[in-house]
Design a protein around this nucleic acid. Structure first.
Length: 475
DNA sequence: TGGGGTTAT
DNA sequence: ATAACCC
């Protein structure tokens, strides 16, 4: 859903001849295979559009984690609170009128029995989230995370393998798992139906694995691309799954009441489209491509117009380990340098623990602020800098003065953004570590080879025993 | 609107 | 460094 086409053909097979979209320019087809000479982008089946994608979406994830931590919460209406918001809640609470991102006051008015737990520390959610991804990676390594509670899995290869093991005369005995969108009738002699049905069985196995290994429930959607898999996963809502057959693709995309409901069309783009008189899916499908390209740029215009037809050729990109770690805190007011320093030091302490457990070393650090403003456009400002190599090497050693020197650096970034001699009013501070590199990797260059010790190339997943600060305190 | 994340420009 | 997108 993010990148422009690398593949020569659009997917989904549901473009019912609405004359607007002009397809891809020759340049795109050239870029696909031309420069490398070898034409290997076509899948073994010979058809790049016949993928089978599963979207897995956990039910009210934070609330589920809390109920696992404290089983006494089960059966009660439960909300997870961050500052004055109920960021998510279980279905008991939803039946009583509580919604996601509802104000705590409003939620308590609607539902006085609501139990609230604080969810500002994401540690347990993050850990459980990665366990879910690991369970899914056992089915196929091609797993893309979207937030903490959603994953895309490309199961095309597994489907192919199972079909090859299956004698043709047994195809008709294959049965779907879960719902079929719009209860469309199945034709197992149609290879696309058959593949998606096998996909539905894999999705069911994934949900079962999540439930048995982690105690979590969730929804799944099965379709021929990420957009459609994501849209269809939400059709039957808690703890159910749905498969979309190609003939119902147009019905699904047209069931959306507004363009903003298309994942990939956010607040800004929706506003720009509305200014052009585009508000329904049909409006976007039939709008002039040329004008849209001039208004939004070729890249965005072509991508979102394809999305409006249910076409999405973006690959499932394996997420792997995180590219960045950050900790943030929001508050009513921070207006002194000392207050900022205290808050920054807290964020840093948590981050150092996390980065130590990961095993990789960040080479860049960033400080982010949000200034108080009456406007809704509360955007953030940031400054970043390289982390000095002598500090990088001390990371994870429990060396106390890394905290001191990093805090000093962060305060320099702070003073670079905020004139502390003038009054200021901040509502958020955040510290981010990024540019993560494998440990013991020297700076680069031809002599890197001589400097790199042949031992200890620890992997990020299950790390070798290493002491962190809190463990050292026990001595 | 929280406390995170990603990619593109 | 910012802006857009996602949850």
């Amino acid at each position: 859903m993010e990148t422009m086409g690398v593949e020569p053909e659009a997917e989904g097979g549901c473009h019912e001849e609405v004359e607007a979209a002009e397809g891809m320019e020759p340049a795109d087809a050239e870029a696909a295979g031309g420069s490398q000479g070898a034409h290997h982008e076509v899948a073994p089946t010979g058809n790049p559009s016949s993928r089978v994608i599963v979207h897995v979406d956990l039910d009210c994830f934070y609330a589920q984690v809390e109920m696992i931590s404290n089983p006494e919460l089960k059966g009660k209406p439960l909300g997870v609170q961050q500052k004055y918001l109920v960021v998510t809640c279980n279905y008991e609470a939803r039946h009583l009128g509580v919604t996601k991102l509802m104000n705590v006051r409003e939620a308590k008015e609607k539902c006085p029995q609501l139990v609230l737990v604080n969810g500002e520390d994401l540690t347990r959610y993050r850990e459980m989230s990665y366990k879910v991804t690991e369970v899914l990676e056992e089915f196929s390594p091609v797993v893309e995370r979207l937030g903490f509670d959603e994953n895309f899995v490309d199961v095309t290869a597994i489907v192919e393998k199972r079909l090859q093991q299956l004698p043709s005369d047994e195809h008709a005995a294959v049965s779907v798992s879960g719902h079929i969108y719009k209860e469309q009738s199945l034709n197992l002699h149609d290879i696309s139906h058959l593949r998606l049905v096998v996909g539905s069985q894999i999705a069911a196995e994934m949900r079962e694995a999540m439930h048995h290994q982690l105690g979590l429930t969730g929804c799944a959607g099965v379709a021929s691309n990420k957009l459609l898999a994501k849209l269809v996963s939400g059709i039957f809502k808690p703890n159910q799954q749905t498969v979309l057959l190609p003939e119902s693709c147009q019905d699904l995309i047209r069931s959306l009441n507004h363009i903003k409901e298309i994942p990939g069309i956010g607040y800004k783009t929706a506003k720009r489209l509305e200014a052009l008189g585009i508000s329904s899916i049909y409006d976007l499908q039939t709008f002039s491509s040329k004008i849209l390209e001039k208004e939004l740029g070729v890249s965005i215009a072509q991508r979102i117009q394809k999305l409006s037809f249910g076409e999405d050729n973006s690959p499932v990109t394996p997420s792997g380990p995180p590219q960045s770690f950050s900790e943030e805190d929001s508050f009513k007011k921070c207006s002194t340098e000392d207050d900022a320093k205290t808050k920054i030091a807290e964020l840093l302490a948590s981050l150092l623990n996390r980065v130590c457990q990961d095993g990789r070393k960040p080479h860049t650090m960033r400080l982010i602020i949000r200034r108080y403003s009456l406007e809704k456009h509360c955007s953030r400002e940031s400054r970043q800098c390289p982390i000095p190599s002598h500090i990088i090497h001390k990371l994870g050693t429990g060396n106390y003065d890394v905290v001191t020197s990093m805090t000093d650096i962060l305060m320099k970034l702070f003073r670079n953004m905020v004139n502390v001699k003038m009054p200021f009013h901040l509502t958020l501070l955040s510290v981010c570590f990024c540019n993560l590199k494998a440990p013991n990797t020297a700076k680069k260059g031809p002599i890197d080879y001589y400097l790199t010790p042949s031992i200890s190339t620890s992997r990020s997943g299950k790390r070798a025993f290493k002491m962190n600060d809190t463990q050292l305190e026990d001595f």
